[in-house]
Simulated assay, not measured.
Amino acid sequence: MKVASIETIACDAGWRNYYFVKLTTDSGIVGWSEYDEGFGSPGVGNIIDQLSKRLVGQDVRATERFHQEAICLTRPAPGSVIGQAIGALENALLDAKAKALNVPCYELLGGKLRDTIPVYWSHCPTWRINHPKYYQPQVKDLEGVRQSGAEAREKGFKALKTNLFIHDEGDAYAWRSGFAVPFSPALNVERKLIRNVMNHLEALRAGAGQDMDILIDLNFNAKPEGMLRLLRAMSDLDLYWVEIDTSNAASLAFVRSQSAHPIASCETLIGVRSFLPFLEARAMDVAIIDLVWNGALQSMKIAAACDAFDVNIAPHNFYGDLCTMMNAHFCAAVPNLRIMETDVDRIAWEGELYTHQPEYRDGALVVPDRPGWGTDPIEAALRARPPKGTGGLLQYKRAA
């Protein structure tokens, strides 16, 4: 079975776009994957188009050969958007291969270890603050934060994750200085931010109750000195983990040594070699792996490396429903799973875009047993909603 054609398709997803690879074989089987250009990765689709020229005509089943050849062809400029393009093609190959064998993708990853996946409700209530046009009810204040926590509990979720917000200037707004919102390249953490973060977390706890696990994502929004200020302020809170992003393994290891809470990190890394400095430095308690960027087969290798260092993993998953299903197969097969990220708030037309949506039962994600990823994008629905010119991080304007 050979690759006959490869196409990229994008569609409107509200405040961002969704992006897909459609890989058609000479036997008529179609393999799909979802990738992203909105999380600081413009141009992935162009690289996919270039790499596809070498993949057309090749054996669909030879996934590792494709990966190794693509690495050779891009060796002078590894990682980043090139790594993401390779991962997107590898994921589409895996879907087509599994469909040809009439098995779920998890069978190609070593087989299923669990039928349901522990998850946390991510971006709670982040999406309702940042993008109220697409996610309702809008959250404007701490009472809305409290109600979001209560909703997560009432819907049976056992864990939720939130972000950094300012509440004492009228409407709530996100603090994302690591992404230039506001533009503050020194990434300093001042008393105002600390006060607001504490108020936000206390409101979430009041709504969610004492049995809810609460996670917070600091992302790239502080340097070690600021991270420590936040961690010291939060030291008496009961938190599942604090998520931190940094490119310096030694700095993160020092921050972890001072933290009262487990540290999760590495969601923007690509390839096993990128993870090794963080593992060797004992920089994090949980390694976050982006399967969409790395590809499922390479993600299994990264997870195995983490397991060798006695580190559990969690997938980075804040994209569309196909990505959630892709990550479900990864989580079903990987032994050292901690928990899976999932976005419960969805755009109104999400259900129109896929043949099947993720199923949650008692706050856990049910692993699909259908062939391939267990869902396919509906091509006519994608094309009926043409993409915006820009979206994701690139849509934000620098504050005056």
Rank of each mutant, 00 (worst) to 15 (best):
L108S: 08
L109Q: 08
L109H: 08
L109M: 09
K112A: 13
R114E: 04
T116R: 11
T116C: 07
P118W: 01
V119Q: 08
V119Y: 03
Y120E: 07
Y120W: 02
S122T: 09
S122A: 14
C124W: 01
C124G: 07
C124H: 03
R128M: 08
N130W: 07
P132Q: 14
K133E: 15
K133C: 10
Y134L: 09
Q136V: 09
Q136W: 05
P137K: 09
P137S: 08
L142V: 05
E143Q: 12
G144S: 01
V145Y: 01
S148F: 01
E154M: 09
K155M: 12
F157M: 12
K158D: 15
K158Y: 09
K161C: 11
K161R: 13
K161T: 05
T162H: 01
N163L: 02
N163S: 05
L164G: 00
F165W: 04
H167W: 13
D168M: 03
E169L: 06
G170C: 01
Y173R: 14
A174V: 11
A180E: 13
V181T: 10
V181F: 05
V181M: 11
V181P: 04
P182G: 01
F183S: 12
S184D: 14
S184T: 11
A186Y: 01
A186E: 14
L187Q: 08
V189Q: 04
R191H: 13
K192S: 13
K192N: 11
K192P: 06
I194E: 02
I194T: 09
I194W: 01
R195Q: 15
N196E: 01
M198V: 12
M198T: 14
N199T: 06
H200I: 07
L201P: 00
L201H: 02
L201T: 03
E202G: 09
A203N: 02
R205S: 00
G207S: 02
G207W: 00
A208Q: 06
G209Y: 00
G209L: 04
Q210C: 12
Q210V: 12
Q210D: 15
M212I: 05
M212K: 02
D213S: 12
D213K: 14
D213P: 06
I214T: 07
L215D: 10
N219I: 11
F220D: 15
F220C: 11
N221P: 04
N221G: 07
N221A: 08
K223Q: 15
K223L: 15
P224D: 06
G226R: 03
G226D: 00
M227A: 12
M227T: 11
M227H: 14
L228W: 05
R229V: 13
R229F: 03
L230C: 11
L231P: 08
A233L: 05
S235F: 02
D236R: 14
D236T: 13
D236A: 13
L237K: 13
D238F: 08
D238L: 10
Y240L: 10
W241N: 09
V242W: 03
I244H: 06
D245C: 08
D245F: 04
T246V: 09
T246K: 06
T246P: 05
T246W: 02
